Simulated assay, not measured.
Amino acid sequence: MAIFSTLSALLQSIPAAGRTTVEAVIEAIRSLFAGDRETRRKVAFSVAIIALSAKMAKADGVVSQAEVAAFRQILEIPPEEMRNVFRLYDIAKQDIAGFDAYAARLRALCEDENGNCQLLGDVLDALFHIAKADGVIHEGELAFIEEVASIFGLDRRAFERLRDRHIAGPDNPFAVLGLPSDATAAEARKQYLSLVKENHPDRLAARGVPDEFMFIASERMKAINAAYSKIAKRQAA
């Protein structure tokens, strides 16, 4: 898994002396991969998942085994790279800088890529996946994700659609597709096809989501397909 060997190179480029900060990691990404835009995007995404997961765990105060398992589902970490990934996790968890400062730096790094910040939505999806792994999204976790979304520049309506897909989705298939409950069959199909196109693996790869992290995309598509199937059956009845 190439992205994890790249993370290893990133960590090796950071001086070991003193306490390493997320700021130092961000600057290392910018300088180490200055001539390779695609790798820079993928590494930034990877570090975002790792560091913000750590910050969310600290904000909530409790890290359950289910959340750790969800974290590892997203990353699919090879055994030989486990140490490097959790070194990044610990750097973020111990860094005195707040998550807001890191999220702002990540957005700025993303905006350097000609404003292509769609991958930040994938980061938020991953955070929701981890937060709900123990069966409930706690108030502190939801507040954390909402603040990160705001810093990323996600508008209120878009955040509510994302939130509803994860929280209300199992009971409200319309929420998964971002539709009102009175949407027509034609509207539901149009929205469904749009979401399928938007979440095609080629689209995700183009915006910097590494192959190793396609688990989130797969879970999103499962939810979209299941929701549309429920809506179609209801409307056909």
Rank of each mutant, 00 (worst) to 15 (best):
D125L: 00
G98W: 05
H166W: 14
G208D: 06
P170V: 03
S53C: 13
A69G: 08
K197G: 14
N225R: 10
E23Y: 10
A92H: 07
Y102R: 01
K190C: 06
D90L: 14
S13W: 08
F99L: 06
A34Q: 01
D211M: 04
F4W: 05
F33T: 00
A24S: 09
L124V: 01
R105A: 15
P180T: 02
F215Y: 15
L88W: 11
G208V: 08
L179G: 04
R165L: 15
P79N: 13
R40F: 10
L32P: 02
A223K: 05
L127A: 07
R234G: 10
A16P: 00
A108S: 10
I91G: 00
V43S: 05
N225P: 04
A223T: 03
A51I: 06
Q191V: 10
K233A: 15
M1I: 01
A70W: 04
S46F: 07
A126T: 11
G153A: 13
P180W: 06
Y102E: 04
A133S: 08
I137P: 03
A126Y: 06
E113Y: 05
Q191L: 15
Q65C: 08
P210W: 05
K197L: 15
E111R: 06
D100F: 07
A175V: 00
A206Q: 14
R87S: 13
I151C: 02
I77L: 08
K222T: 02
V63I: 10
F86I: 02
D36W: 04
K190H: 12
L88F: 10
E80S: 12
I50L: 11
F71V: 01
R87H: 11
V136R: 10
V68S: 09
A227M: 09
A158P: 00
L52Q: 03
I3H: 02
A131M: 03
